[in-house]
Structures are given as C-alpha cells and as structure tokens.
Write a protein that binds this DNA or RNA. Structure first.
Lengths: 227, 227
DNA sequence: GTATTATGAATGAAGG
DNA sequence: CCTTCATTCATAATAC
C-alpha cells in the first residue's frame, strides 16, 4: 500500500488522460475520509487496549480480582461442579480451539481431533465429540457471518439511504456520528497520511495481500437483496 | 481543497451547499478501497485477539463464561452511536415479521431471509442475521409456549430445572472485567457500520482439507456431563 | 433507582 | 458439509 506514491487529487485527470475519472460528491468524500479515519482510530486504540491489557494481566497468573468474587460453586475453569447439561469450553480450551481454528482452518482429521481432545482434556472435561462439534459449528458460523457480511454497507449507501421511518429508533447521520474529537483531527489530514499504524504489522503477519476486499465502490447499485 | 471547483456536469448532485464534486482517478479509487479493506482486516484481527485474551480474564475473575468478549467492546463503541447494542425491531418491522411468521409458518429459506431483510430495511436498520435470529427465536418460543400449555393439562412435573441456588446466579456484568479504561477509550469511537466488515472473513479464510468422513456417528455412550 | 420480563443473540448438539 | 433445534445468556423494555 503505497499511498505516498499516489498523486494528489488535483492531478487526477492527468492520470487517465482526463478520460475516465470517478466522481464523488462532497458528502461522499467526506464520509469516506471519516470512515478511514475512524478505522485508523479504532485500530490504534485496539492496539493500545491490547497492550495495556496484556501488560496488566498475565495469561497464566491473571488473578486480579478487585470488585469481583470467586464463586465457590464454579471451578476455576468455569464449569459448574454439578453441571449436567451441555459441554461448555473453558476459557483455556476455547483459546486453544480458536488458535487451532486459525491455524489449520478446516475440519481436522480424526486423528487430529483425538490429539486436540487429549490436549484440551488437560484443561477440563471434554470429549472428541465436543471437539468435532465445535469445529463444525465454528466453521459453519464463520461462513454464515461472512455471508451476512456480504450485505453492502458502504459509506455511500449509508449516506444515501438514511432512514427516518422509525420514530423511536432514529438512525443517526454519519456526519453526526463522528465525534468532533477524532474526526476533526483527521479531517485536516488527507488520508494518504494515515496509511500505517505502528505495531500493527506485527499482528498482520497472516495477511499478505488484501486482495479480496469488497469492491463496493465500483458497484452502481447498492441493492443487497438483488445481489 | 481547491479542486472542488471542478464540476463535471453529469454528476451534478444537489448538495446542500451547491454543486461541488470531488474527482478521483481510478487508481486513487483503487488505493482508497484497499486502504479501507486493510483497516477492516486489521480491526477484525484485533478484535479476535482481544476476544481470546478477554476469555483469560474471564477465567481469572471467575465469572461465568459463555459469551465472546468483543461484545462489550462493540457495545461501548456502538452505544454512543445508535444508543443500543442489540437490534430491536421497529413496530413496523415487527408487524411485518409477525405476518411473515404467520404465513410462511416455519422455515424461511436463505433467499427468503434476504428478501425479508431487504423489505424490512426500508423501515429501519436491520441485517439478515437479525431476521434469521428472529425467526429462530419466534419459532422456539412459540413451541415452548405450546409445551407449557400442555404441561398445565398433564401435571408432568418432570422438572428438569434443577437449578442450584448459587449466589452466582446473580447477573455478572462482563463490562466490569474490562476496566473503565478500555470502555472509556472506545466510548468515543464511532464503530458505526464497521461492526460488520464486508468480505473480511473471506480474506481470512484459509485452505481447507476436504475430509469427507463421519468420525462420530451419534454415539450415545459419550457422557461427560453426568457427574 | 432496582427488580422483572421480554427478547435478541450465542452456541452446543443433532439431523440430513 | 449444511441446516435446524434447544438451551442459555445478556440486555432493552418495563414494572415496581
């Protein structure tokens, strides 16, 4: 992503010989910039949040209780001692499972399931069936989420299709949504400036190329239902 | 920005201020899209990271487990924006949904859900997931009401609700775990329309090994919770 | 303000 | 693999 190499907008027409240009309204431009700005802010704050939490707690020894209490009827793993209903992964198990899912995304082989089950059994009661089901569900729901996320939610559409139908559920305009603090500071910046956030590349080790983004800016109709 | 003086005639929109438009080249458009996409991916991954870590604190604090922890985070962000965390159907939407439920009686297909979602989106913010959940819940609770009504006739008294009288039955707020520091920082963020990143899950999809087998065919002799 | 209810959402499990 | 069901949790709405 080389924003720095991009020419400023004034020369936009020269890039294509003045033949083909995309045109955005002032409002659309504004919203788009704010969208990016908000992303930047979110990422930064997420990173900071993660840092602070990571330093404050340790995965192994995190025992800061403060205003909280440990209930005697709940094991440290979170299982009800007399719980007799469906299996619930302990946090540790969940974390391991999530990591497994992230790594070899896909249904593990049977042997793999046995292996995982054994490892997880070190952190709480579990059976192979639980692991199997978990992966099945995890996968299915990941897909469903993705499918739902297919709903177009691009900025332009948001600006144009502002509903005022519901009296008690008023949809707020994006312009108003951006609180003055974060928006203002970024508003002066051209979005070329905020291309990189510190410390994020470390987290982005997985993704090499953001090639499969949603090409929503090219679509002329933002009808999500007809798609 | 001085280039708002350029006014291509074909896109003269009636903006409140006047007829100013911004012009972007195709390339710039492309880069802009990439930028947004990358931010989306980053945010997604950060949230995942936060989620997995939050489960650790959950463990440490001894609260009951179950839900993901990106939720409170989103809540803090979204609360400022639309005033609510979870979707609430507008009266109009509810009416339509009820009518649908009476008609279709039971199983709305995926395409049907898309259709319904689109129609309802004309009357307020909604997503396919909302519609899906609504029908699921509607059916389940309708069925449950029937059961209860039946139970009144035959005094079955097969009470499965052997609930423990543990003090932890009190509601434990997950927000308490995430200290005010985090909530504070996200409070002023606009997470609007970014809670669902389009096509991001698609990016993070990995190659899956096709394993078409049935490892666990409903063995009834697995019981882990009878203890 | 606090307690209760109604209900959106999450998820383990089962069926196909 | 996909969908569906049942249960549970958390919270908006409401009652108190």
């Amino acid at each position: 992503m080389e924003w720095e190499n991009q020419k400023p907008p004034e020369t936009a027409e020269e890039l294509n010989g003045g033949m083909f240009v995309k045109v955005m309204s002032d409002e659309q431009m504004e919203v788009l910039r704010k969208q990016i700005a908000v992303y930047g802010v979110i990422c930064e704050q997420l990173v900071q949040l993660h840092k602070s939490m990571a330093s404050q707690y340790d995965l192994a020894a995190g025992t800061r209780l403060g205003n909280l209490y440990c209930d005697p009827l709940i094991t440290s793993a979170g299982h009800r001692i007399n719980g007799r209903h469906r299996w619930t992964p302990t946090p540790v198990q969940l974390q391991i499972l999530e990591r497994m899912f992230d790594q070899g995304n896909g249904t593990p082989t049977k042997q793999k399931i046995k292996d995982i089950t054994f490892e997880l059994s070190q952190h709480g009661q579990i059976s192979e069936m639980n692991v199997y089901n978990w992966f099945q569900n995890r996968r299915a729901r990941s897909k469903r989420k993705q499918q739902v996320g297919t709903n177009l939610n691009n900025v332009e559409s948001e600006v144009e299709t502002e509903e005022v139908e519901s009296p008690n559920e008023k949809k707020t305009k994006p312009e108003d949504l951006i609180s003055s603090k974060s928006a203002e500071s970024f508003d002066q910046l051209s979005f070329y400036e905020m291309s990189s956030s510190p410390g994020i590349n470390d987290i982005m080790e997985k993704m090499e190329e953001p090639a499969s983004y949603h090409p929503y800016l090219h679509t002329e109709n933002y009808d999500m239902a007809s798609g």
